[in-house]
């Protein structure tokens, strides 16, 4: 059950075009993802950052087809190696998930079953997609745990998830995602529960996958320094939309969008120790009834009357897009 090879070799691994995913709740329509587009090339890493609640996780869920009612994809396309994933049957999609596309969930317990031992779960996962003996499967599971820095993997395989620390659970979920060397990995906050040394180990493994197997990565995180060190490109989300995208260094050095600028300014290392951290004024808008026009308007230091119109997602500098009518262009050109 392999995918028809429509795309020419060398085409992007993933293309998301104008994706919209809405939740139809009793209180109204939550436009969790509302016109999101980006491309991830083979072997490349895209860092997806943004406001908490801006739709990063829902974007990931939409790509792998795990949006539950009352949520629904209401528009756009997800192309995996040129194939529109909406055209696949449920069975084809299931086969794709875990085998060629893997997601590391923000909540590791979405991957792990609390009542099963780790070995049972991992061996099952191996055998679901590869015809190998139980012994061979156990060996692969063992190696995968070692890869993510879990000591005593033999003993740990016999444990239940609740006997693990937060970070260990996360690492088991990562190990499971890496088992089949998928072509695309969507990693949702995969290292937030990890200390910097173990995080370094995981990031090194991720880089190895990209370099050796051409795996494309979407790395969802709040940690801008991880994005800086790992990603090739970055996309910044705010209120269901990508508001800025481009090469990671260029964006972090001289952001175009005022939200991106505010975000970078809040990083503790950019602030004097102990002094109040600079924060973006105001509160996250409710996605239920967003005002027309730019959703960042009420909080933006550069807002003007024109911002009441929806700003287009335009390419202001080569390879650099922003959804803003008044971006920091001079600053970006000077940088």
């Amino acid at each position: 059950m392999s995918l028809p090879a429509v795309a020419a070799p060398g085409g992007p691994t993933l293309e998301v075009r104008n994706l919209r995913t809405h939740f139809f709740t009793r209180a109204g329509v939550v436009k969790a993802v509302d016109d999101v587009s980006f491309t991830v090339e083979r072997g490349k890493v895209m860092g997806l950052v943004g406001e908490s609640g801006s739709g990063k996780t829902v974007t990931g869920f939409s790509i792998i087809g795990l949006v539950d009612p009352p949520g629904r994809i209401t528009g756009g396309q997800v192309l995996f190696q040129g194939t529109d994933l909406a055209s696949l049957s449920e069975a084809e999609m299931r086969n794709l998930r875990g085998n060629r596309i893997a997601m590391i969930f923000q909540d590791p317990m979405m991957t792990l079953n609390p009542v099963l031992r780790i070995d049972t779960q991992m061996i099952e996962t191996v055998q679901a997609h590869a015809r190998v003996s139980r012994e061979e499967a156990r060996q692969r599971a063992r190696d995968a745990l070692g890869q993510v820095g879990i000591p005593s993997p033999d003993e740990r395989l016999r444990a239940y998830p609740h006997q693990f620390s937060g970070g260990m659970r996360q690492r088991v979920a990562i190990a499971i995602a890496l088992l089949h060397k998928p072509e695309l990995i969507i990693a949702d906050e995969p290292t937030t529960a990890l200390d910097v040394t173990i995080q370094g180990q995981i990031l090194a493994e991720a880089q190895k996958l990209c370099a050796q197997f051409g795996t494309a990565l979407i790395w969802i995180t709040h940690d801008l320094s991880v994005v800086a060190g790992l990603a090739d490109d970055i996309a910044v989300m705010y209120a269901g939309k990508v508001v800025e995208s481009g090469e990671v260094g260029a964006v972090l050095d001289a952001p175009l969008h005022p939200y991106t600028a505010g975000l970078i300014g809040s990083v503790p290392s950019r602030n004097r120790r102990g002094a109040p951290l600079s924060q973006i004024p105001g509160m996250t808008p409710s996605l239920l009834n967003l005002p027309a026009g730019c959703a960042f308007r009420a909080r933006c230091p550069r807002a003007e009357s024109r911002c009441a119109e929806p700003p287009p997602f335009a390419e202001y500098l080569p390879g650099r897009h922003a959804r803003c009518i008044h971006p920091y262009i001079e600053e970006a050109v000077r940088a």
């Binding site: 879990i150 000591p151 003993e155 740990r156 370094g200 800086a228």
Partner: peptide, 26 residues
Amino acid sequence: LLSEVPRIDTRKRAFAGVKGEIPSPL
């Protein structure tokens, strides 16, 4: 620990795996 802290000013670096064996609390 402090030498591993990622910095926002560092771009596209090669991350290193843990050197030596990670000991187990078991």
